[in-house]
Simulated assay, not measured.
Amino acid sequence: MKKILFVTMIALMVAVLAACGSDKEETGKAEGAEQKTITFGVTPWTSTVPPTKIAGLILKDMGYEVVETSADAGSVYTGLSRGDLDVFMDAWVPIHQTYLDKYEDTISSTSVSYPDGETGWTVPTYMEDINTVEDLKGREAEFGNNFYGIEAGAGATIESNEILEAYEFDMTQVNSSEGGMLAQAQKMMADEEPVVFYGWRPHTMFNKFDLKVLTNEKGFFETSSVEVITNNELKGNAPEAYEFLSNWSISIDDVEEMIVKIEEGDDPETVAQEWIDNNQDKVDEMLGK
């Protein structure tokens, strides 16, 4: 009887182990298997779309499944740090340095997309006597005591609050989406009213309107390096994808040109594929061919 019980227990154990092995094979999560799905964090900025779409299409051609998750900047960095997201194609450094410092144990800058992203407080050029942030002091009421910014979780929003504090401006930062901010600015510019808002390049705002980015003496909003950030586990889990992303680069002019096409109604993936087709030598270089 004991012998029969022992044999039965062994048979059950073998069956359980076989089932576990089968489950791993079916889900593609067998220990040591390469990760085949790459998840991008996508912020609600027009500058994020072209590089994300191009990188996604190339990774699909490499055999990966690609998933895009939309979130504000703070949530994207949190997702990267937790491993819920793998890649963010639009990190602005030093604006986002606080996030990189906070999650330095789990995320890293992998490559530079382009080194010349311009950002800062922006006004229309018809405001001829406003050329620096310092010029706003004492004139806050002319602007309705408002500075218009993007979403609350963005690094630019944090730095703009630091400007308000550093200069002791009698102003409030009004936060909304990129589209909401620009709609408000456009409405005021149509009547040539005083308005100050957050601007950056690459962006079609500089193609559509006559704008200038204000300089300042306190070192806020330095020229940004726009970089690719990855979760630290990606290098080991998907080495080929990581190698491609580590070789990534694109010109700011190309990104801005694609943004214009997308805003004019072209499909983002079609625009991205067109760039790939016209820059195959660049793609081969990033793929290490």
Rank of each mutant, 00 (worst) to 15 (best):
K3S: 09
L5S: 06
V7D: 00
V7N: 05
T8G: 14
A11E: 01
G21T: 04
S22Q: 11
T27K: 14
K29Q: 10
T37Q: 10
I38Y: 02
L57R: 10
V67M: 10
D72P: 02
V87T: 06
K102T: 09
Y103G: 04
Y103M: 01
T106C: 01
I107T: 01
S113G: 09
Y114N: 03
G117E: 00
T119V: 14
T119G: 08
G120H: 05
W121N: 09
T122H: 05
V123P: 06
M127K: 08
M127F: 01
E128H: 10
D129Y: 00
E140N: 06
A141T: 09
N146P: 03
A152C: 01
E165Q: 14
E165T: 11
S177W: 02
S177N: 07
Q186G: 12
K187L: 15
A190F: 11
N207R: 14
K208S: 04
V213Q: 11
N216H: 05
F221D: 00
F221P: 06
F221A: 00
V228F: 05
E233L: 11
N237L: 14
E240S: 14
S249T: 13
S251N: 09
I252W: 01
E256A: 09
E256N: 15
E264F: 00
D267K: 09
W275E: 04
N278K: 15
K282T: 14
